[in-house]
Every structure is written in C-alpha cells, then in structure tokens.
C-alpha cells in the first residue's frame, strides 16, 4: 500500500485534529467501539501525530465505522472524527486493487429483503 501523508488526510477530510482537547467523548458512544482496533479519539490523535500507516492497515477500524455521526454530533470541539475515518478509508480504496467490497461477493450476501440502499451504501463506503 502506498504511503499517505498527514497533510493529505487533513486535506481530504477538512478536519483540524489540533482542535481536539482529548476528552474522549467521541469514543464514549461509538457504536462500533468494540469492533474497531483504533477508536475515534485515536484516529484524531494518530493523524495529529502523523501516524497514518497503522490506520491505513487497520481494516477492522476502517470498515466497521457505521458513519452514524454520533462522534460528530457529540464532540464539544467540532472535530468531526468520522470525517477522518472516511478520509483514511478513501486513501486506501482509492489505490489500485484496494477495493474492500467486490461485486462478486454480492450474490453470497444477498437475501430477498435486503434493501438496495444497503448495497449502494456499502459500495460507496468500501469501493471505488
């Protein structure tokens, strides 16, 4: 996987991690906390420190974020951690051959009630 700079992540996300005062409120109610290797507050801290690579490699963290905006809504400093997760995820899937979800897998997971919305959303989040 190609290297991605901290500046690139900040540019894509529009997030300024320096605004964070390290209260951890974003991670307090993150519904995917248990599933994620790095938690929302760690995304903010690690981007600030320029530790991008471990985040790029952490599929558990990138693909379990539900984009539910709980961290964005509750942050007292308007940091918007979800946008950092999204930026890192994009930095991965925009690279050649890094799509997380492939069309071939859809028939396996399909059931008759599954709304289109789920498939469309998953492709938006997991593939380019």
């Amino acid at each position: 996987m190609a290297q991605v700079s901290k500046e690139e992540i900040i540019r894509i996300s529009g997030v300024n991690p320096l605004k964070c005062m390290r209260c951890g409120k974003c991670s307090a109610t993150c519904p995917s906390y248990e599933e994620m290797e790095y938690h929302p507050h760690q995304f903010v801290y690690m981007v600030e420190k320029g530790e991008i690579e471990p985040l790029l490699k952490s599929a558990d963290s990138l693909y379990h974020c539900l984009s539910c905006f709980a961290c964005v809504e509750r942050c007292p400093r308007n940091v918007e951690p979800a946008k950092l997760v999204e930026a890192i995820r994009l930095a991965v899937i925009r690279q050649q051959g890094q799509n997380h979800l492939k069309p071939e897998t859809i028939p396996e997971v399909l059931d008759e009630d599954l709304p289109q919305q789920a498939i469309v959303s998953a492709f938006r989040k997991y593939s380019k």
Partner: peptide, 28 residues
C-alpha cells in the same frame, strides 16, 4: 476516570446507563 461521558440512558428499572470513555485504559 480520564474521559468524557457520551450518553446517559435512563432505563426502565430506574437506573441510568452511563456510557463513557476511559482514555487511560482505552476502554468504553
């Protein structure tokens, strides 16, 4: 505990479920 409370959920049994971060032990 170093960390912020994110949500207090009043439960049917009258208790309050407090969801919070423990930043030192990296736990929810």
């Amino acid at each position: 505990i170093k960390g912020m409370v994110g949500k207090v959920a009043p439960r049917a049994d009258g208790t309050l479920l407090v969801q919070a971060s423990d930043l030192i032990s990296n736990e929810q």
